[in-house]
Structures are given as C-alpha cells and as structure tokens.
Design a protein around this nucleic acid. Sequence first.
RNA 1: GGCCCCAUCGUCUAGUCUGGUCCAGGACACCAGGUUUUCAUCCUGGUAACGGGGGUUCGAAUCCCCCUGGGGUCACCA
Length: 717
Amino acid sequence: MDLVDDINLERPAHRAVPRVRDQIPHVVHARVARGVDLDHVRVAAGHDRLRHVVRVVGVVQGLGEDPGHGGLPDPARAAEQVGVGDPPRRDRVLQRPCDRRLPDHLVKIRRPIPTRQDRVAHARSVRGRPPPGPRAPARRTPRGIGSLMPQVITRFAPSPTGHLHVGGARTALFCWALARQAGPDGRFLLRVEDTDRARSSKAAARGILEDLAWLGIDWDEGPAFTTEDGRTLGGDPRGVGPFFQTQRLEIYEKLFEQLLESGQAYPSFETPEDMAAMREQAEREKRTFRYTQPEGYDHARALERMRSAEACVLRLRVAQPEIVVTDEVRGRIVFTPEHYDDFVIRKGDGFPTYHFAVVVDDELMGVTHVVRGEEHLNNTPKHVALQQALGYRTPTYAHLSLIANPDGSKMSKRDKDKAARAACHERKVGTPPPGLAAGAIDAARFAEWLGDKKSQLPSDQLQALARAMHLTLPEIEVEDFRRSGYLPETLCNYLALLGWNPGEKNDDGTDLERFDKAALAQKFAFERVIKKAASFDRAKLLAFNQSDIAAMTAEAFEAAWRAWAERENPGLLTALADRFPLAARAAQIRARTLADAAEPIAFALHPQGAVEFDAKAVQKVLAKNGGEGVAVLREMRVVLAGVEAFEPVALDAAVHAFAEGRGLGMGKVAQPLRVAITGGTVSPGLGETLALVGKAGVLSRIDRCVEVHAGLEGAEA
RNA sequence: GGCCCCAUCGUCUAGUCUGGUCCAGGACACCAGGUUUUCAUCCUGGUAACGGGGGUUCGAAUCCCCCUGGGGUCACCA
C-alpha cells in the first residue's frame, strides 16, 4: 500500500509532491461467480473507474445456467456488490490490483472464460451437434496461458462484387491473427455474402479466395480451395456450412417464420418509391427519417396479404429505448432509437438483407469475434437488436478504422478510374486511344466515363487503357499489389502496421516494425489497435518491399521473380532465357518490386545493334581529353576478346588488371565500357553487365560504339 | 444536415489509461556528408509534430469542457 511513496522517493525533489489522498483506489467488495472476469464485475457493480480494486469476498451460487449466454454465467448477475471502502491495511487475500492498461471508456465486458463443458453445452444448443474439436489431435495444453485461452472463432465475410480491397485484406489479416493466437481452439472462417444477386459474381468470389491465399491468410473453414503449392484450404469440419449465403435460404426462411409468428417481425407493403417519398418528406421537414408502422396495422391481415403473394418486405420490430455496443477498440457506445428503426430483414426478392444474414450466420457458425471496418459501426445496434430478438449471444465486436488516401479521402476502387481519367484529360485524350485492342472500349461508353466523375470502367478495360497509355494506376486492390510485384509477406507486414503496432522495441532502440505473420499472430491485441484512420503510404511500403527483397537469398529471389514473370511478364523470361539467373543476381539489390527489377538490366534486353548513346554520357566519358575513352575501348576490346570464362568474377578481374597495368583509375576504364554496352553511365556491376550481354554482344557493342564515336578521338577537348 | 467515430513530425506511429524521467522517441520520405568503377546497397548526421481556446494541477502531449478540422453513416448494397 506504500506504492505511492515508493515511487516518489525515486523522483527529483521538486517532483516529490505527495499525491492526494483520493488517488488511492477504492475497493469494491464483491461476491462473484466462478469464471467471471473481475473487470466486468467492476462495471456490473457500478464501479467502472479502473482504479477501483475488486476484492473477491465470496462466491455467488447458482448462477451457472443462463441460456442467453450459452450456459455461461451472466456477468451482469454474477456479482453482488458487498461494500465500498478504503483498502483495509493488512488484508492481502485474493486481491487483484487494477493491472489492466485500459482507459475508463474502454472498460469492457470480457467474456467469462468458458470451460470445455460450457462449450459442449453451447454448441449443442446452437446446432444440436457435437462441438468443434481441436484441430490438432488432443495434446496437453501447457499450464498457464494456454489453459486459460478461450475459444476464438473469427470470420471474414466479403461480398463477391469485385477484387479484394487492401482494407478488406487487413481486416482478414487481423481476424486470422486472432484465431491463430488462440492456438488449436482458434478458427478462422470465410463466408461469402452473396445476397446481392445483381452485383455478386462467382468470378469475383474466386478472385477473393485467390487473393487471400496469395497473402497466406489461410482459412480453416469455408469454401474449399487448393493453393498453388497444393494445400487445401476451407472445408466444413464442424458442419456449419454452406458458406455461400445464397445456399442458406432455408435456414433464413425458418427464422423469418419464427419471427413472424411471435410478432417480432412483420410484413411491410410500401414500394421503394413509397419509401423514397417518405424520406423526402422527412428531409423537407428536417427530421430524421424513421420507418414507422402504418396507422391501424393489423398483423393477421398483413400475414394474410403476404401469404396471398402480395409483394412485401419483412421488417424487424425494434423497441429498445437504447442499445449499448461494446467495441474492443472504441469502447462503449450508446445508441438511441434514431439509429435503428424497424429495418428490413428480408428483401422483396426473398433474400435476407445483410443485417439478417450476418447475424444469423455468425451465431450458427459460432463466431465469437466480429472484426470489421468502421463503416459497420452504425449497423451494430441493428445487429444487437436482431440478436436479442432471436435469443442469440452478442459476439465481441471490434471496428477497425478505414484506410485513407494521402489526401485523407477513403481509399477506394474509384481512385483508379480517377487517375486514368485525369491522365486522359491532361493528355487531351477524348476517344479510346489507338494502342487499345479494337472494340475493347466502346467509344460512347468511353466518352461517358470521361465526363462522369463517378463512372467506373470494368477493371480489365481500365487495365488495358492504362497499358495503352503507359500509365501506372494506383494500387488499391490486393491483385494490384501482386501485379506490381510486392511480396505477400511484405504487404501483410505493412498492412498490419497500418492500424496496429506491437509497441515493442528492437535491441538497438528502434521500434519493432518488421515482423512476419507468425509474430503478428503472437502479438496481436485489440488494445494496440489504432483508432485513427491511417493513410496509405506507398513510399514506406516500397521501402519495406525493397529491404525484404534484398534480404532474400539469391535462389529465393530468383524463384520469386520467375514466378512473378510467368504470371505478369512472360516475355521477360523468353528474352532472358538462360541468362535469367545472372539477371536476377544483378537485379536483386536494385529492385524495389518484382515489376521494376527488370529496369536495371533492361540494356540486356535490347537488340545488339540498337544501343542508343546518351549525349551527355558520351561527352563526359568518351569525348573528354581527346577521346581517351574511345582509345580505352579499343584496348579493352582486345583484353575482353581474350577472356575465356565470360562471367562476372573473371571479367571484373580482367578489367581491374588492365586498369592497374595501365595505371588508370577504375572510373576511366569502367565508364567507357558502360557507355559502349548500355548507352549510359548507369548499370549494375561491370562484371555482371558484361556477362549479361555475353562475349559476342560485348565485342559487337564495343565495335559499334568505337565506329560511331571514332571522330572524337584525337580531337581537341 | 442528424447521429457516430477520430485528432502527436509530410506519412505511419511510440508516449496518453497510471500527469513530472518528453525543450516528445522510432520508421519511411526529404536534405547534407562518407564508402564504392556508375547505379543500388551500406554508414554518419540533420530538418521536422503535441489543431485552437479555456479549465483542473506546483506541474498537462497526457485529465475535463468547448471550438475547429477530418472521416464514417443515414438503402429492399454489403
């Protein structure tokens, strides 16, 4: 209890002012049920100040079977406050200090730690099936942390309307990390939310699976998928599928029926036009629009109309005066009724709305943690209302901030259209450019796209347009980053850092920023998730990618570059042929991405006679001092013609020996050669440069260079 | 506009809960210098931030209030 004074003793005199008495924590005496988190007790007992210490003074009996919590004790009832007072001096029994590093507004209701029995009971009540077994064969969990680890089931639930956006990838990554962190009891599942029949496509769903697999974000349950290296992802070991919502209609139908019967849901017959009119009127009257049931609504009559196939939607009756959402990153948020009117749960086409399907599926799939983008924060009270209507548990929620562009706007797929459109305007391109395959983009459509800021071209057309205009579009989707030659591990590393950080230091005092997915899974915690929206910094990603490429072994880089080229630039492979390993060695340290790796060795791709000499380089290297560079070239030609093994080390040795023998600096010898071989003064190491072009190529390039620049020799400088 | 969320170098962030060790640390970018046959790499150094105003306190980046700014959301999309 003398902690305070101990601290102050260490401080310089002017700071050693004693703390005021009220800094000392109050103590709440409480009786609690087994398995209940004491932080929660603090809240339940009305003492949510963190500095309050909860002292357990007994056990509350008979609170083990609350069906609403799947057989776990209801935390709200699991504590009885006994009294509040100053800490007694000598009592050290069962005290739990306030050691959680959380601000008041983040005091959160943690789930009681479920036992194996609890989980069994829970799973039965949900599915009438045995509970999920551990993935690995039963193994002894280490004592301590492992045995206390609750089951964690997370999911990523994309809607297949396009490629995977980086924001989605980050969400998936965090979900994955959370599940992996929980060890054998953790599961990460993938569910495809395809209830929007107009916008969903099989191809998009497939693309998202590919993107996820490429990133190494493996899902335990969900659509089956075979990776490029032959691993199988997905599947349905617990029997909670199918994982496409359009295949789950029967499940939803039953629940609709149930809600209709109990009167918690009701049919509503307004057309979309009616709704629009009502909204407009609300806006005119400057009030927030809320749907209200029509005067004189008659449930029996409404059901009758519905059964006679009259067009209608189903709405949930929501009567809660307020709904509290507890979010792992944002804390406790209280929502009032204007956030959740009687919203639609079944659309006119018979499909469930997102709100309905997400709540039902999360429950039925046993999802414990819902991690998603901030755009869903305002939807959460609706989901909680639905859970209450259906008698479901509420999962732990965590809403991640959005990823923004450097200008602060939301990073969006439209940004690619924006960039292309801006380039067209700037270059005064008014019709589909000629480089484009005929008919790739309809001229009228192109004009429309050019004029409408919100218009989007299909991604393949946009890609073709960019190619034709030699334009680099901003990378927004995972697929874009893959095409641009980023390493999947690097992207994951950077994405993880965009909104979270491990808060640890390296040995040299710098912040821990570089880590792999395994470390992420080990360290990830909501407590260190940043609330602020982060803007995406390509320069930093590029720096990460470059250093990761540099850190690879030569073999690994060669393999990665080859794999990338096979997919994105097969011409590079044919042009380089058996020179590829040599090219890879020269390119690696100079590459920021797999796409730009070819740039430093581009000279090796030119036809032999086509070297274009840079005028400045010629002046500086060949012409100076009466064309001494050209003279060196003549001599070097003889030397190089005599080199048997035309490979970097031998070539470097030969050039060095020549320079030394002639008493010249390396610069005087290397630079003329560079210009002769590449046309400019910049290239990889001289040995590599020469080896890449080959003996015949080197000699012919020297010959041509000497021929073209012979006039410089002997001329006055 | 209503509601919700957020606010430290140009950018990503540490520090905020538990006020003093912070005239604020790291990374990327940028600038300068060095190593090297050019480039790249590598090394050394530097510029650079607590949005504004009140309050609490001996003391505020840190706690409270207001303002401002940014973002999100208000669908039979997800």
